[in-house]
Amino acid sequence: MSYDLVLKNGRVIDPSQSIDKVADVAFADSKVAAVGAGLSGRRERDVTGYLVTPGLIDLHTHVYWGGTSLGVDPDSFAKLSAVSTCVDTGSAGPGNFAGFRKHVIDRCEARVLAFLHVSFAGIYGFSKNIMIGEGHDMRLLAAREAVEVANANRDVIVGIKVRIGRHASGPSGIQPLDVALQVADQTGLPLMAHIDEPPPSYEAVVSRLRKGDILTHCFRPFPNAPVDGAGNIKPEVLAARERGVIFDIGHGMGSFSWKTARAMLAHDFLPDTISSDVHALCIEGPAYDQVTTLSKFLALGLPIADVIAASTVNAAKALQRPELGTFKSGSAGDASILELRSGSFDLEDVRGEITTASERLFAGGLVIGGKLIEDAQPTQAAAE
């Protein structure tokens, strides 16, 4: 049988099926058609020496380009970072989601899914010179409108977003979380909660989250780290994992610390999902992109299969989108082509600490909906 497209001779890593072997991956009618040996297609690309994984899902991005000051272009980011699905987390709220959908989501090559912000205008005041937490004024929280917009856009809205902390919610404290939880309950969608510096505390926020809800920025530095001064995981964090809360990295410009990560991994507490939280203020560092963020966990000693799982099958489960993050026959026809290089690579955290890694992932190509994206190439950060 001849398929539409075949990626040939790559090292196929698909944690959803426990696959790690040299094989071909075939696509037909925009779906995954087969994984095996000796497959042929009308179009073929030899990917010998590369890793081939289900399309990477970046569970935390900001890609409302032009509509918010923190947005980056999703197609450019996807192509340069081998990400097939960008999940925007709260850039838009119910007051401006229609514009996000019409001008970005419906027009771009990359798949864009969204967590709808419970704040009416989303994250509207986030730049180098202006930083206005959208949760500071409770009058901006739009519960009824959020339910209406989420229900009208269930094909692309996958959850509800709220940002909590001294910077994001300020004098409102933890109250926006209470509103967001009600919206999530009314829509039957998971909630993603951002946590920055206290107040409120990391413990207070994570204690409110339910099974299937997501705590992003889970490996934050002090203050509001998940570990105490002795490096022990706080009891509320362990209790949250026990009841099924999902822990997401959300690196960004202030939310990943080597010190915290080492402490968490020393207690065998791995993140469920790894995401970049890419936005206009961290795309040139310290987050850069998804492949850089994933590489940091290779440097921490995680096996490559676990790192890939955290950006494929685990992310798909968090989104409740089983057609993503897998090479099972009939699934979404997405693939990431990655290069794993050996060498000496300096990787920074948000506090400026640098760890020198002996291997690093680079973007090598991208397939979305069974189509090879021709101009996908490594990021500038990756090339340096």
Rank of each mutant, 00 (worst) to 15 (best):
D4Y: 05
K8E: 14
N9C: 06
I13P: 03
D20Y: 11
S30A: 13
K31Y: 00
V35K: 04
G38S: 07
R42K: 14
D46K: 07
D46R: 03
P54D: 03
S76A: 05
A78P: 03
A82T: 07
A82G: 11
T85N: 03
T85F: 02
P94M: 09
P94C: 06
F97K: 02
F100V: 03
R101V: 03
R107P: 03
R111Q: 11
L113W: 08
G122K: 06
S127A: 09
K128A: 11
H136S: 10
L140R: 13
V147A: 09
D155L: 03
V158Y: 04
H167C: 04
P171L: 06
L177W: 13
L177K: 08
D178W: 08
D178G: 05
E197M: 15
G212E: 13
G212Y: 12
C218K: 02
P221N: 10
E242N: 10
R243A: 06
H251S: 08
F256I: 02
W258G: 02
K259F: 09
L265T: 06
P271Q: 11
I274R: 12
T292P: 01
L294W: 04
F297W: 15
G301T: 10
D306I: 03
N314K: 14
S342P: 00
F345W: 05
L347R: 00
R351P: 01
G352A: 11
G352Q: 08
T355H: 08
S358E: 15
F362C: 07
L372I: 08
